[in-house]
Computed example of a mutant assay.
Amino acid sequence: MIQRILLYILVFSSSCIAARAQVKKPALTPIDSSVRAADTTARKNVAEKKKPVPALPDSIYEVPGGIRIGIDISRFILKVFQPYRTDVSFAGDMRIKKDLYLAAELGFHSTSHSDSNYTYKGNGIFTTVGVDWNFLQKISNKERYMIYGGIRYGFAHLNYEAPSYTIYDSYWGDKLPGSFPKTSVNAHWVELILGLKAEVLKNFFLGWSIREKIKVSGPSKDLAFPPIVIPGFGSGTKGSQFDWQYTVSYCIPLGNIKVHVPRKAEPPKRR
Results as ranks from 00 to 15, higher is better:
Ile2Phe: 10
Gln3Asn: 15
Leu7Tyr: 14
Tyr8Asn: 13
Leu10Ile: 02
Val11Glu: 08
Ser13Lys: 03
Ser15Glu: 10
Ile17His: 09
Ala19Gly: 02
Arg20Cys: 11
Arg20Glu: 08
Lys24Trp: 09
Lys24Asn: 13
Ala27Lys: 10
Ala27Asn: 05
Pro30Glu: 11
Ile31Phe: 11
Ser33Cys: 01
Val35Ala: 09
Arg36Met: 09
Ala37Trp: 07
Asp39Gly: 10
Asp39Cys: 05
Val46Ala: 12
Glu48Gly: 02
Lys50Arg: 13
Lys50Ser: 06
Ala55Asn: 09
Asp58Ser: 08
Glu62Asn: 12
Val63Thr: 02
Gly65Arg: 11
Ile67Met: 00
Arg68Asn: 13
Ile69Gln: 03
Arg75His: 10
Phe76His: 10
Lys79Val: 01
Val80Leu: 06
Val80Glu: 01
Val80Gln: 06
Pro83Phe: 14
Pro83Ser: 15
Arg85Glu: 13
Ser89Met: 07
Ala91Met: 07
Lys97Ile: 00
Lys98Ala: 11
Lys98Ser: 15
Leu100Lys: 15
Leu100Glu: 14
Ala104Leu: 14
Glu105His: 13
Glu105Ser: 15
Glu105Gly: 10
Leu106Val: 10
Gly107Met: 08
Phe108Ile: 04
His109Trp: 07
Ser116Lys: 05
Ser116Ala: 10
Thr119Asp: 12
Tyr120Glu: 01
Gly122Arg: 04
Gly130Asp: 06
Val131Thr: 09
Val131Ala: 11
Asp132Glu: 13
Asp132Leu: 11
Trp133Thr: 01
Ser140Ile: 04
Ile147Leu: 15
Tyr148Asp: 12
Tyr148Cys: 08
Tyr148Gly: 10
Gly149Asn: 06
Tyr153Lys: 05
Ala156Asn: 01
Asn159Val: 12
Tyr160Met: 11
Glu161Val: 00
Ser164Leu: 08
Ser164Ala: 12
Tyr165Asn: 01
Ile167Gln: 12
Tyr171Val: 14
Tyr171Ser: 09
Trp172Gly: 06
Trp172Thr: 05
Asp174Pro: 00
Lys175Leu: 10
Lys175Arg: 12
Leu176Met: 03
Pro177Glu: 08
Pro177Ser: 07
Ser179Thr: 02
Phe180Glu: 03
Lys182Glu: 15
Lys182Asp: 14
Thr183Lys: 09
Thr183Ile: 08
Ser184Val: 02
Val185Trp: 09
His188Lys: 07
Trp189Pro: 01
Val190Cys: 02
Leu192Ala: 15
Ile193Leu: 02
Ile193Val: 05
Gly195Lys: 07
Lys197Cys: 02
Ala198Thr: 11
Glu199Ala: 12
Glu199Arg: 11
Asn203Val: 01
Phe204Val: 13
Trp208Arg: 02
Lys213Trp: 05
Ile214Pro: 01
Lys215His: 04
Ser217Asn: 14
Ala224Gln: 05
Phe225His: 02
Pro226Gln: 09
Pro226Ser: 05
Pro226Thr: 05
Gly232Gln: 03
Phe233Gly: 00
Thr237Ala: 11
Lys238Val: 02
Lys238Ile: 00
Gly239Arg: 05
Phe242Asn: 08
Asp243Cys: 00
Trp244Arg: 03
Trp244Lys: 01
Val248Thr: 03
Val248Ile: 13
Ser249Glu: 11
Ser249His: 04
Tyr250Asp: 08
Cys251Ile: 01
Cys251Asn: 07
Cys251Met: 12
Leu254His: 01
Gly255Met: 13
Lys258Met: 05
Val259Ser: 12
His260Gln: 04
Val261Cys: 07
Pro262Ser: 08
Lys264Gln: 08
Ala265Arg: 13
Ala265Pro: 04
Glu266Tyr: 11
Pro267Gly: 05
Pro268Lys: 06
Lys269Ser: 03
Arg270Ser: 03
